[in-house]
């Protein structure tokens, strides 16, 4: 367990020192969300209606940028080999790294989402719900994303490939994330079921996704 927290701590420290990755994700999030109203026109009613969807989709796109780097640095500088000889099974290594990814990417993007919501005229009562659903849904994004990061380590064109691989796997998270916020906005009573399913998806991915990621990592180490 000590080794686990050492690894999480190191990844947080690296993210803090290298800084760039979080900056790029936040910057990309901002760019996508500002570009869309420029393309769609300044119709505030339209924007506030589609804001939950835009914020979620842009969040996923911003996360995709960083997923390729999740295991890549450790793979290239030989750290992954040493991690594999450590006391933790690779499954736990995958959990630790996904957790650190969530803390350094999922959380900052979630915190930024309400600010971008202002640009899209998101109704005020939706902010709490938006942050809540994103907190519940982004773990799934980081943990499922780790599978993509592990699969594409030795692939050519890893960046584009990871987007293609992750798109179908992110559909349920995206669907229920948007559904929960929209339902809360329209007051249709559909919020709770969608929110709970989103939580369930996150919990299931925290348990299951590292298993797949670890299998992939073992093959990459061969």
């Amino acid at each position: 367990m000590k080794a686990f927290w050492h690894l999480v701590g190191r990844d947080l420290l690296l993210a803090w020192r290298e800084g760039g990755a979080i900056g790029v994700a936040l910057g990309f999030y901002l760019v996508v969300v500002t570009m869309l109203p420029l393309g769609l026109g300044p119709d505030l009613n339209l924007l506030s209606r589609i804001a939950p969807g835009l914020l979620w989709v842009a969040l996923l796109l911003a996360t995709l940028l960083s997923l390729g780097r999740l295991f890549e640095m450790d793979f290239e500088d030989g750290s992954l080999e040493v991690l594999a000889t450590g006391p933790l099974p690779l499954e736990a290594v995958a959990v630790a790294k996904s957790l650190a990814h969530w803390l350094t990417t999922g959380i900052p993007l979630t915190v930024m989402a309400p600010v971008l919501g202002l640009l899209l005229n998101l109704p005020l009562e939706a902010y709490g719900v938006l942050v809540g659903t994103m907190l519940a849904g982004t773990p799934a994004v980081s943990f499922i994303g780790a599978i993509g990061g592990a699969l594409t380590l030795r692939a050519r064109r890893g960046g584009v490939l990871i987007a293609l691989l992750m798109l179908p796997l992110f559909v349920p998270t995206l669907q229920f994330g948007i559904e929960a916020v929209s339902a809360a906005l329209t007051g249709s009573g559909g919020f709770m079921p969608a929110f709970l399913i989103l939580v369930a998806i996150s919990l299931a991915s925290v348990v299951l996704a590292p298993l797949a990621a670890a299998v992939a990592l073992r093959f990459q180490l061969q």
Binding site: I147, L151, T152, R154, A155, R156, R157, G158, L161, L164, L165, L167, P168, L169, A212, V215, A216, F219, Q220, Q222
Partner: peptide, 27 residues
């Protein structure tokens, strides 16, 4: 498309087969 793209972008055929299989089961 993901399965096919993953297979075609990994040089080592044995590795590509194993990774594609992982993705197939995740799918």
């Amino acid at each position: 498309l993901g399965l096919i793209a993953l297979r075609s972008s990994v040089e080592d055929e044995a590795l590509a087969a194993n990774l594609t299989a992982v993705l197939g089961i995740v799918g």
